[in-house]
């Protein structure tokens, strides 16, 4: 008896069916669990274990190996500031400090109303558009500390239902790693990647 919504259960079934062995679905299912509960809870790990036939300790072993399965309460908007080498060279640390300062949320933490989480992360593959930041894994390239502060204020104020990369890039970004060219109206609905098969997207094309 699953506590997941009908539609999540349906997705879980479809995802499991894609793999030759059930256990392979543990990572996608952890995203479903996050989408259900806002972060990976103990109940979520137990549930995933039931779906794929492994023990909760085994689910935890997997979930805790990766950085994106947040096992603590996480804000609606997860701001990930890259401070790896290429971003660092172009001021990534300043962006992080600006975000921490403006939001009042230090690395690895979440504000009291559960709106913002802030973290610094390793390379997010945006080195050509450094320094870069992601909000719920939707990318903004070419930030400045001032623009980063604006981003924080905007998130607090606008509270977008769907976090859209193009919109944020337009508002706060500048130089990109390459020409994005194709704009997109689909984005994130929580601190996990927005991907149609996992039912985690918002907006439309």
């Amino acid at each position: 008896m699953s506590y997941w919504s009908e539609s999540t259960q349906q997705r879980a079934k479809e995802i499991i069916a894609r793999y030759p062995k059930k256990r392979s679905a543990v990572m996608p299912l952890l995203y479903l669990a996050m989408a259900e509960d806002g972060h990976v809870t103990e109940e979520g790990m137990e549930e995933v274990g039931r779906w794929v036939g492994i023990s909760p300790a085994q689910v935890q072993a997997v979930a805790s190996f990766y950085t994106m399965y947040k096992r603590e309460r996480t804000g609606r908007y997860l701001i990930s500031c890259c401070t790896s080498i290429s971003c660092m060279l172009l001021g990534g640390d300043d962006i992080l400090h600006a975000v921490e300062d403006e939001s009042g949320v230090p690395h690895g933490e979440t504000d009291p109303d559960g709106l913002l989480s802030v973290e610094h992360v390793e390379c997010i593959g945006a080195c050509g558009g450094a320094p870069a930041v992601q909000v719920d894994y939707e990318l903004i390239e070419g930030l400045t500390p001032e623009k980063a502060r604006e981003l924080v204020r905007w998130l607090r104020k606008a509270r977008p239902d769907t976090v859209l990369s193009d919109e944020m890039q337009e508002l706060f970004g500048s130089r990109t790693s390459f020409d994005w060219a194709i704009s997109e109206g689909v984005g994130a609905t929580g601190p996990y990647p927005a991907f149609e098969p996992y039912g985690t997207t918002g907006g439309d094309e």
């Binding site: 080498i85 080195c127 790693s177 390459f178």
Partner: peptide, 14 residues
């Protein structure tokens, strides 16, 4: 994910 690398991202997206 190797710091400095972002070429596959472009191929995948574009």
């Amino acid at each position: 994910s190797e710091p400095g690398t972002f070429k596959d991202r472009q191929l995948l997206e574009r």
